[in-house]
Nucleic acid binder design. Sequence first.
DNA 1: CTTAGGCTTGCCGCCATGGAAAATGACTTC
DNA 2: GAAGTCATTTTCCATGGCGGCAAGCCTAAG
Lengths: 101, 101
Amino acid sequence: MTEARFDETIHAPVRLRICGLLNKADRLDFAVLRDTLGISDATLSKHIKTLADSHYVTISKSSSAKRTDARRVTWLSLSPTGRSAFAAHVRALQDIADSRA
Amino acid sequence: MTEARFDETIHAPVRLRICGLLNKADRLDFAVLRDTLGISDATLSKHIKTLADSHYVTISKSSSAKRTDARRVTWLSLSPTGRSAFAAHVRALQDIADSRA
DNA sequence: CTTAGGCTTGCCGCCATGGAAAATGACTTC
DNA sequence: GAAGTCATTTTCCATGGCGGCAAGCCTAAG
């Protein structure tokens, strides 16, 4: 069981939600995430970059099928490292909520 | 049972910890809280003000006992409103952790 | 009146955040 | 293969939070 560890990078509201969503889904499409969060392309892109720089999120772009209307999709997912960090952060939050920290 | 409600004011790391601590203890001395959090007087004072402005925290200063070494103490505590808000915020965090939000 | 303790405020630098708009990159099309 | 599209990414810029130092205040004690 991972140690509780408060993570400033994850704590920011938008990034916390991103991690929560990615933690449940195996992966999510950039556009879907952006709409779910109700933020702009630019904003999501920057938060994803922040998380990717910490190796918490991985990005993979579908080369797309040859045929016309096949959208190009950017898939986002939490890396194992990201899952651990998120779990540790959640634990830190629980400790705070219970006033154990 | 209160609704889950994400509260930006409470979410800031230092304030989240302040609320967590005050939520458990009935009230805490300014100095103790400052040392527990490991921050400066100024910083704690400003965060407390922020919370007080939202009516989450109440401040009461002991007039002190007449006798000499009786320290003047500033007691801080979570108001009922503050407790509800904190509980609601914690619930919002749980929802995010479980990806229900 | 002067001190001293203890919180509060003003000041200032620094970094985070968000969106609009310009810039990219990777296909499609003609 | 030049031009167009679409889906992000970056740049630019304005706004606002945060922290500490130092000065200010207030209250109680000399």
